[in-house]
Write a protein that binds this DNA or RNA. Structure first.
Lengths: 196, 196, 196, 196
DNA sequence: TATGAATGAGAATTCATTCAT
DNA sequence: GATGAATGAATTCTCATTCAT
């Protein structure tokens, strides 16, 4: 048997890690972080607890890894949307990409929703989430300004709340929620130059 | 020495229960249900763990008691608002009373927000919460119809999401959130007959 | 209201005590001593826990009171039986009185059966039970001698075991056990002069 | 270092389980099930409480494991005895094997004796015990019939009670009880064709 | 890399007992 | 005599984490 190359090892590591992360994600999202045991995760992922601790030094670090990965992905998605020239189109791209992510990866975003309600618990992760949100607010506000909305500072609070609430309701019953209709309507109202 | 009367006992019981409920409420809201131990509650309330179990057969039943109490209070508040004749005024009364409750009793409503994200965990309570929400939706929808909003079914989803999101953001940072400005703006837009 | 006389107080005390004892007896017999809580007893007896502690300084002392009362009653019953002149008749009287007590007061004797299997737990009570049993053995042995049984020392072990076993089986299913037939047969064999 | 093989793990598991079972057995038998704490068992066995819960999901399940193991062993022992051709010899073999088991494994059988007095507590185990006993009764009755005992149905009650009582007395004072003499005498009387 | 037995700190819960009234 | 609220020590059980292999 030829010894595995470094690359192969790396691949194995990475694959196992991803697998564990995804399993943990699902469990955290459905049962909550505190009510999910490390044993649950290991069983569900089909690996030993020991292996988990090889990759993630603690249960909390595992959670942070999940958050980090998701933030990175979100960042990538957003970047593209931000590059759109026309502000109305840009706003629509941002909105669509946000909700596409939520639709495609419901569990992960549901978990985020939950975590953001516990600022104390997740120190580091919370911080990063906070930063991400601040950036978003800035981006939205400048678009609304470009679109001539009066009081864009206030409007961004409203728009932000609207998105937050839509996500919340969607996560509560992903099957039943009329996400597309609601989104279309919101886009119709916001993604155009202000007109009274 | 003669024994205490039934009334005296009842008063003592009631006072202790309320005290425990309020303490637990605060802790559940800030740390989450699972991360709050019965020992935490007892320490914070300045009573023994045993006393909690005198009044509530389990930690979960304590949570349900909190929910039940809050739902009852909410019901009372709403009832008054619903009686207003003019639909625009009625809507405003509903909105104001909802957010007044949230402002006055931030912790409790924050806890609700959190709990509604874990449908699995809280069986009974979750059910009642669900029912309450359904009623609300009906009420709002009929008002929006009275106010001549086109597509009131869709509009109620949007308005509901807006409220949900405002609450979420408010709970995340009650001190900093410009609740009154946001509310005034929302009321200005919705609490009047539809006009394009 | 005229103050109660000493006698009246005494009567109340005695009645309450008996009531508590009987209630406790039933619960101990059906659920076991360790699995019966003081609260169970108080609830079932319809008195407060405090009152129980007025009469019995601890749960264990209550158990000992039960045992003591029963031993006293058993002693009385036996005394009469022992006075019978004819040894065969005396044996029969002893047997019948033993099993009559068991039939009439199943729960109490069932409890005894159980307790006698835990010699360590019930220090004092166990001792008295032990003494009672020793006395019994002496009485039976002398009767068997009078009846010319060969090896009466051995026979008393056998007869004792037979009684013990009959009681055990009877207590396991008091409704179904053919106690009378079994007893009649045993009496037919033993309550007469030995005849090979 | 390579991980342990499945077999090695199995061996470790099995050894720990046996050790815990045996320790628990001794404590249950001497102090009773309810009065033995999991901490007692762990301390006596020299392991952590957690380990017990690794192998047995609850204290009660541990008890059931003990019962199950013992019933299996008893079944094996009996099977051999039942195969003896001559009914008198068969009866003797059954009696001897029963009491040999009791002598060799006093604690376990003492525990059984106790448990059978609490039919409510031990659901599953109790059921199996009951079944085992029923089978026994059938076997004994057919032997007594073969041996021409008159009224074998009645006789089996008596013989059964005799055995039960002998066991009880033996367990109460294993050191002092003249088990062999008593048994020899009983065998002399029963293990032969009936002769008045 | 990978395993899972073992641990121990701490969680929820129970309950005999005390005590102010 | 009588009550039941309150306590705290003990009990059952959970689980993140460690470690020998």
């Amino acid at each position: 048997m030829s010894p595995r190359t470094k690359k192969q090892f790396e691949a194995i590591r990475s694959q196992s890690q991803t697998h564990i992360i995804n399993t943990a994600l699902g469990l955290f999202a459905s049962k909550g972080f505190a009510s999910t045991s490390v044993a649950d995760i290991a069983r569900e992922a089909g690996v030993s607890k020991g292996l988990m601790y090889n990759y993630f030094p603690s249960k909390e670090k595992l959670l942070l890894a999940i958050i980090g990965q998701a933030l990175a992905e979100l960042g990538q998605t957003m970047e593209k949307a931000v590059e759109v020239e026309d502000p109305a189109k840009r706003l629509e791209a941002l909105v669509r990409s946000t909700f596409d992510a939520a639709k495609k990866d419901t569990e992960r975003w549901r978990l985020f929703q939950i975590l953001s309600l516990y600022p104390e618990t997740i120190e580091v992760g919370g911080l990063e989430l906070q930063n991400g949100r601040m950036q978003m607010i800035g981006i939205y506000q400048s678009i609304l300004t470009e679109l001539n909305f009066p009081k864009p500072e206030l409007e961004v609070w409203i728009l932000g709340a609207l998105f937050e609430g839509i996500l919340t309701h969607f996560f509560e019953a992903p099957e039943d929620y009329p996400l597309d209709e609601v989104l279309d309507e919101v886009i119709k109202r916001y993604c155009k130059p202000y007109s009274g």
